[in-house]
């Protein structure tokens, strides 16, 4: 036993000691998957979001009521922040929502997604999960089939951590 232990100790020094002292030198991380760096940069301000919004509204002033945005008080996981948006009035075969856009103002690409509906939908109520690069305003715009435009905007605080962008 004695001879084994001393032998093993020496080997341990070689293997374990090198491992702790010189990580790169001995290629310790050879099989550990490497997380990629990201070049994603937040928008400096809401200018790009404003541009996207103006494109959607055609410059018209949207109504500040009729569209609801549900966000958590805190986005505890910035890689998946739940966002629900819905038109509050009932949808009928005569009056319905054609399209909703969702904008994350300061994300590298602020337009988060579009939703398109038809007279057959009978509803305009959607929810998705967003990855948010930092705390920012979230807004949504809706266009009804009679040309009315609706808008809603809300700030969200997200916890620190990777958003996966």
């Amino acid at each position: 036993m004695t001879s084994y232990v001393s032998d093993m100790r020496r080997r341990r020094l070689l293997a374990g000691g090198a491992a702790v002292a010189g990580l790169a030198a001995c290629g310790l991380w050879a099989t550990a998957a490497r997380a990629q760096a990201s070049l994603a940069m937040p928008q400096p301000d809401s200018a790009e979001a404003d541009r996207i919004a103006a494109e959607f509204t055609g410059g018209a002033e949207p109504l500040a009521e009729g569209l609801a945005l549900d966000l958590p008080a805190l986005g505890d996981n910035p890689a998946a922040v739940p966002v629900r948006v819905h038109v509050t009035e009932p949808m009928t075969e005569a009056s319905w929502c054609e399209e909703i856009i969702l904008i994350a103002d300061l994300n590298p690409k602020p337009l988060a997604c579009r939703f398109r509906f038809t007279a057959a939908t009978g509803s305009a109520d959607v929810a998705v999960r967003l990855r948010l690069i930092q705390s920012m305003p979230i807004r949504a715009y809706a266009r009804m089939n009679d040309g009315r435009l609706l808008a809603v905007r809300q700030e969200i605080t997200v916890a620190a951590g990777g958003c996966g962008l």
Partner: peptide, 13 residues
């Protein structure tokens, strides 16, 4: 096992 055999220790996640 790697240490007892005197092999390079590989970090795994």
């Amino acid at each position: 096992g790697e240490r007892v055999r005197g092999q390079e220790v590989v970090a795994r996640l």
